[in-house]
Design a protein around this nucleic acid. Structure first.
Length: 642
RNA sequence: GCUGAUGUAGCUCAGCAGGUAGAGCACUUCCUUGGUAAGGAAGAGGUCACGGGUUCAAGUCCCGUCAUCAGCUCCA
């Protein structure tokens, strides 16, 4: 039997050899670290015999697939521990996650877990792990499996089995715990050396709020204790970046229950940064032929009946407002307003594309449990624009919109993933005919391919009027959020009866592209705060420079320097308190101000300043002329430090 | 919206066997004039989220509301 390795090497083994034996034949280290083996692309347990020639790949904790196996097995280990501590616990599902695992369980009557119970379970898990339990794979008949779980009193497993009637059923046993599971698992629990249970939360069975709420425990495990320590340090660092924490500390925004949940209020410093971002993108829009418009915050309900947003999204809109005999809606979208502008007069194909842009604030009713800092709010501002173009222009317009979005993420150095959001053919929530959808989805794919985008496809993620390309970013604690978006729309032109006169003197329907490179200013800001950990670059920082005179003998000179810098257009503050320089520096650093200029007798005599850069420390003295030049260079969004 | 936890000074938090509300930082005043991350002293500051209830007495116990957090569900 010939086994081929990922590097192309081939070796001969006798039939029925296991992954573990193959690892052992390669190296002791690998045999110790191996967690599973892919046989012709199929995950196998290391103990499972391989019966024919195959391409194999042995995975360890260093591989994502290895982590998945490790954490999935850890979920089983946790279940075993919980079952031993709380006999009679019923189990739901327990998958591996990107970072760890969870298990959903239905604890016995009267048992309520709190965070204080977690160390007990952790200790049990470690104890079980050290007892060298072997994961055993059992292929079993469907009916036997049902009988087994009936006897075991696990209704959830039986329900899962109902959906697996035509499949091969396997059970996995380790120690006293047996689970319905497809696998794969680690060979032995002893590779789990460090355990941390992170939190407890409720989770509905099958995600259905009508059904039972199970107790979900999240945890993470590692093959080395040091790895857990590193992970916890990293997690702590990430939590320090949380925009809700930094937003408060740096006085960027607030949320007042007196105004309303999910309705953020921008404080002067936060508002400054946001305006700066707006100016930045506006300059790019002008360069790209957009025209700015302004539309009101409410609109006649009929407008949204025409667009289809009402009643389609009635659940996530604020209730209509009665005005005399009409009903108005707080606008959930800007597009219907912009379509009115298009409709104002007839258009020739020669005018297209028409690109209407607006920082439009929209209001959506989000469930109270969903609200989250700036990332999920009830009122937010989109850097919205609608491009009305002919079908011939569609590709190049989409291309340009994607390019602009990419420019944004590149400028801020944010890592994004790109999703082609397509419809789910089995759902009826989409407007327009299937042929149109197929075309639009194909066009988007073509453009993405031509641009060499590294994308994945999100089925069922399209908006109701068309497919889109979404740019998705992770926040500091690993949650994913959609920011920029580019959407194709053949539906609204129909609904609003948009037309243009073509070269053939006939009426034609334009196509609409909806696009927002930032997405929402609120959400973008939240990610930006976390991305920079509050250390905004020079061009964005509300206060760019803090001048710190050492004693009051330098106050006059400090004010003079401040005046020169202000005249040159920089945002400067002077610290004229009778504090020691060490404290002034400490506070300037804590406020994350990019540059502190320290001024003592020496600097005053030399017409210079001592330059301290946030995060770098003292960088020596420079003359006033030199720093003005330097700041001018830094005050550019596209400035990159060599 | 659902489940659970939390809500005490501007901030971070202690007080939880019911018995007159505390610390550090910030703030004010005074002293200090100091060279690259926190000098000293004094002072001021709280309807203990809000509304009910139990009790001689409630920050503390009970109920409700609001908000925040974690998760679930949802997201044009």
């Amino acid at each position: 039997m010939i086994i081929t390795f990922p590097d192309g090497n081939k070796r001969e083994y006798s039939e029925g050899i296991t992954g573990l034996e193959i690892s052992q034949s390669l190296s002791q280290k690998l045999a110790k670290e191996a967690l599973g083996i892919f046989v012709n692309g199929v995950k196998y347990d290391l103990s499972r015999p391989i019966k024919q020639d195959a391409n194999v790949k042995i995975v360890t904790f260093d591989d994502d697939e290895g982590k998945e196996i490790f954490w999935h097995s850890s979920a089983h280990l946790m279940a075993e521990a919980v079952e031993q501590i709380y006999p009679g616990t019923k189990f739901g599902v327990g998958p591996a996650l990107e970072n760890g695992f969870y298990y959903d369980m239905d604890l016995p009557e009267g048992v309520k877990l709190t965070n204080e119970d977690l160390p007990k379970i952790e200790a049990k898990m470690l104890e079980l792990a050290q007892s060298n339990q072997v994961f055993e794979r059992v292929e079993i008949d469907w009916q036997d499996a049902v009988n087994y779980f009936k006897e075991d009193g696990d209704p959830y497993k039986i329900e899962l089995l109902e959906g697996l009637k035509d499949e091969e059923i396997t059970l996995y046993k380790q120690g006293t715990f047996t689970d319905l599971c497809r696998g794969t698992h680690i060979p032995n629990t002893n590779v789990i050396k460090a355990v941390k249970l992170l939190n407890i939360a409720g989770a509905y069975w099958k995600g259905d709020s009508e059904r039972n709420m199970l107790t979900r425990i999240y945890g993470i495990t590692f093959p080395k204790k040091q790895m857990l320590d590193d992970y916890l340090v990293m997690k702590e660092e990430a939590e320090k970046r949380d925009h809700r924490k930094l937003g408060k500390e740096l006085e960027l925004f607030m949320i007042s229950p007196n105004v309303g949940a999910g309705l953020p209020i921008w404080l002067p410093k936060g508002a400054f940064i946001r305006r700066k971002l707006e100016t930045f993108i506006k300059e790019e829009l002008i360069r790209r032929g957009y025209e700015e418009v302004i539309t009101p915050h409410i609109g006649n309900l009929n407008l949204y009946r025409t667009s289809g947003h009402y009643p389609y999204y009635a659940d996530s809109q604020f209730d209509p407002i009665k005005v005399e005999d009409e009903e108005y809606l707080l606008k959930p979208m800007n597009c219907p307003h912009h379509h009115q502008i298009y409709l104002l007069k007839p258009h020739s194909y020669r005018e297209l594309p028409i690109r209407l842009a607006e920082f439009g604030t929209v209001y959506r009713y989000e469930q109270s449990g969903e609200l989250n800092g700036l990332t999920r709010v009830r009122g937010f501002t989109q850097d919205d624009a609608h491009i009305y173009c002919t079908h011939d222009q569609l590709k190049s317009e989409i291309h340009n919109a994607i390019e602009l979005t990419q420019l944004v993420f590149k400028t801020f150095g944010m890592p994004v993933s790109t999703r082609l959001s397509f419809r789910d053919e089995n759902s009826s929530k989409y407007a327009g005919d299937p042929e149109m959808w197929d075309n639009a989805e194909r066009e988007l794919t073509e453009i993405a391919d031509e641009m060499g985008l590294d994308y994945f496809i999100g089925k069922g993620e399209a908006s109701f009027y068309g497919p889109k390309i979404d740019f998705i970013v992770k926040d500091a604690i690993g949650r994913k959020w959609q920011l920029g978006t580019v959407q194709v729309d053949y539906v609204m032109p129909e609904r609003f009866g948009l037309e243009y006169i073509g070269a053939d003197n006939q009426k034609h329907r334009p196509v609409i592209i909806h696009r927002a490179p930032f997405g929402s200013m609120e959400r973008f800001m939240s990610i930006l705060i976390e991305h920079y950990a509050g250390n905004f670059p020079f061009w964005l920082a509300p206060t760019q420079v803090k001048i710190l005179p050492i004693s009051d003998k330098q106050f006059e000179y400090a004010n003079k320097v401040s005046e020169i810098l202000k005249q040159a257009g920089f945002r400067v503050e002077v610290d004229l308190r009778s504090e020691k320089i060490g404290r002034k520096i400490a506070e300037s650093e804590q406020a994350k101000i990019p540059v502190s200029l320290i001024i003592g007798q020496k600097e005053m005599d030399a017409d210079s300043v001592s330059v301290r850069i946030h995060g770098k420390g003292d960088t020596g003295s420079k003359t006033i002329t030199e720093i003005v030049e330097m700041f001018k260079k830094w005050d550019d969004p596209y400035f990159k430090e060599e």
